[in-house]
Design a protein around this nucleic acid. Sequence first.
DNA 1: TTATTATTTTAGACAAATCTAAAAATTTTA
DNA 2: TAAAATTTTTAGATTTGTCTAAAATAATAA
Lengths: 217, 217
Amino acid sequence: MQSYTEENYLKVIYHLSEISNPVQTNAIAERIQTKAASVTDMIKKLSEKELVNYVKYQGVTLTEKGKLTAINIVRKHRLWEVFLVDKLNFKWDEVHEVAEELEHIQSSLLIERLDEFLEFPKVDPHGDPIPDQHGNFAELAFVKLSKLSPSEKGTITGVSEHSSAFLKHLEKLGLTLGKRIEVLEVIEFDGSVALDVEQQKINISREVAKHILISKY
Amino acid sequence: MQSYTEENYLKVIYHLSEISNPVQTNAIAERIQTKAASVTDMIKKLSEKELVNYVKYQGVTLTEKGKLTAINIVRKHRLWEVFLVDKLNFKWDEVHEVAEELEHIQSSLLIERLDEFLEFPKVDPHGDPIPDQHGNFAELAFVKLSKLSPSEKGTITGVSEHSSAFLKHLEKLGLTLGKRIEVLEVIEFDGSVALDVEQQKINISREVAKHILISKY
DNA sequence: TTATTATTTTAGACAAATCTAAAAATTTTA
DNA sequence: TAAAATTTTTAGATTTGTCTAAAATAATAA
Ligand SMILES: [Mn+2]
Ligand SMILES: [Mn+2]
Ligand SMILES: [Mn+2]
Ligand SMILES: [Mn+2]
């Protein structure tokens, strides 16, 4: 069994792996709000436990065992987020902190029953996919809004940034999950995007567009 | 804010206070499955934080602040137990361990919303009362089954022992919450009790009778 | 390709929570 | 009330996760 702290490290390494592999010590330190020296210590420990492959000065990758462990934590995190929003009426920008704690509760019976109670949701309130108990994700066809060209249409199905500031901003703009959008123009100067959302013309920065996930159909 | 460990100590001291006040070091050690020396260390720390009053060699009592903190943890524990039984179909002997973890989740919004979602339950699955957010308990008139005399009648409304072994034993005997019982005889030799439960005559030990709570009406 | 800069690791220290063994205080027994 | 038994505390060590400061390695620039 892993400690609360080890689990947080594994999850962070898992998420960072999607950006760069192997994952660098400093990247982990920044995410986990700690010092590089502490990360090195923990990496050695996880390596001992065969949860990561570690080469000095090169960085870490998750082993199969480490990856499964990480995905299981992600599963729990996202299921709890669904519970908070669907059953307890939390807003999508209020759930992250609490789920960060709930994801560490150790009971597979609990999580399977929760999954059932929520009627086996496929995505969390931010549109992120929820893996099944074997660690498999249902394939979802996403594309970043920042990758679309003028006249392309689609539906907002997720976000890749979960800060309250970002989510509140989206809400204010009316850019919530399920909304149909069409790209009207991509401004050359700063990469910002003009959109049509329900007959309204809206402008968003490239930074914002990069974190909105669109499914085209 | 208190650590996970400090919270567990406060809760144990709270429960033991109902039996003997002040609470002895050894009693805490036994409950928390640790050594007396560790308890002394923790007591000093809680005393520093003004959560307990501590006199060397005499034992501890909770301060008002400590008591409120403890009751709040009890509140969370019992609400989560209701959730597990009512919503996730756990059996009453399966919930304790999980609630022992869930009670430490730090979010007052979460717990108030959970209370609402569960429709403000007054008792947990073991018949224990759930305090409100100010730490007040609704008065419940309980008496231990071991205190009843022959021909007295009542309804099983709680238990004061939560081990799986005990709860399974009760279940096997058909002694579950809500059942009407009548005391037929109290055996002088060993204090064991003969009961009538739904036209069935049942014998239970004094030890078992002490942990069954009856409301008379 | 050497020097500079950035990244990572080591060394040594610290706080939290625990332990064992021994000393001190209290309670019980005789 | 003095001796014995029990309970509690202290002293010192250990484990986990963290830190700062300094050394080692790798990447980048001149
Ligand atoms: Mn977490
Ligand atoms: Mn999410
Ligand atoms: Mn607990
Ligand atoms: Mn209970």
